[in-house]
Computed example of a mutant assay.
Amino acid sequence: MKTHFLRRAWSRSGFTLIELLVTISIIGVLATLILGASTAARKRADTAVCLSNLRQQSAVFAIYAAENDGSLPAALGNVDPYNSGTLVSWMMVVQYYAQMNFPKDRQRNILLCPSAMQTYPGKVARRTYAMNVAGGAGNTPQKLARFTKPSTTALVVDARAVGTAGDSSSTFGLSDINTTPEWRHQGALNVLFVDGHCQTMPASAKTDFQRYVQNFAP
């Protein structure tokens, strides 16, 4: 009797093949759910970091304007603060005022959107934003006071890579409004406006975005 009881107890102590397969399936489903939640959380965090970058850029622009008669740096054609013999884009001005070294690939800085790591060739990214030059060539500094609609005028946006060095185009305008801005935040675009506020614009707001870009024109 005792031997029979032990044999029955032992027979119930292991998994059947069906139970094992069901358990593996449940673990697989849970892993997928956890991974999906983790990926979504990372993407939301990247979007938040990108918005923080734009806010810090806005602070740099405010400091620059305070020291330059209320003008923003030109999108292009600024005197290089490191070497007065050359002309540079607004990015170099931001680097100088933010006391940044020239960024390396994947180096955390206020000109690098972390989401660009997933969209740039070879995941090489270091400076990933473009300034609006709608209505001009971008060589002339613009005074903040001239903007009549600063809260609805796009200034800096997420931008696509140019080549494989990890940099975006430094400017964009009406002619490349559909090619340079990169809607890389799960189909959305982060935008810094002239008044200093930042916004994540969904793909459904592309018509509004075009108007915000056009508002930059003198």
Rank of each mutant, 00 (worst) to 15 (best):
A154Y: 03
V156G: 08
T148M: 04
T171P: 02
V162S: 15
G173Q: 00
S169T: 13
R160K: 15
A159M: 03
L174G: 13
A137M: 08
K149S: 14
T164Y: 10
T171R: 02
D158W: 04
R160H: 14
K149M: 11
A165D: 14
D167I: 15
T171Q: 05
L144W: 10
A165H: 09
T152W: 03
A165P: 06
L155N: 05
S168Y: 01
Q142L: 09
R146G: 15
T171A: 07
S170Q: 07
S169F: 06
G135M: 04
T128H: 11
A130P: 03
A145P: 01
V133N: 05
M131G: 00
F147L: 09
G163T: 06
K149A: 15
A130V: 04
G138W: 00
T152F: 08
G163V: 03
K149D: 15
D167G: 15
G166S: 01
A137Y: 04
T152P: 09
L174T: 15
F172V: 05
A134L: 08
P141A: 07
V157Y: 07
M131R: 02
A159Y: 04
P150D: 04
S169W: 03
P150R: 01
T164K: 12
K143C: 13
V162P: 06
A134I: 10
T153G: 02
R160G: 14
D158G: 07
L144S: 14
A154P: 07
G135W: 09
A130T: 04
G163A: 05
F147S: 08
A154W: 03
R146I: 14
S170E: 08
T148S: 13
A134W: 11
A145H: 01
L144Y: 12
V156D: 09
G166I: 05
G138D: 02
A154T: 12
L174M: 14
M131T: 03
A154G: 10
T171V: 14
N139S: 14
F172E: 00
P150A: 03
R160M: 11
A165Q: 10
A154M: 02
A161R: 12
T148H: 01
P141Q: 06
A165E: 09
P141T: 10
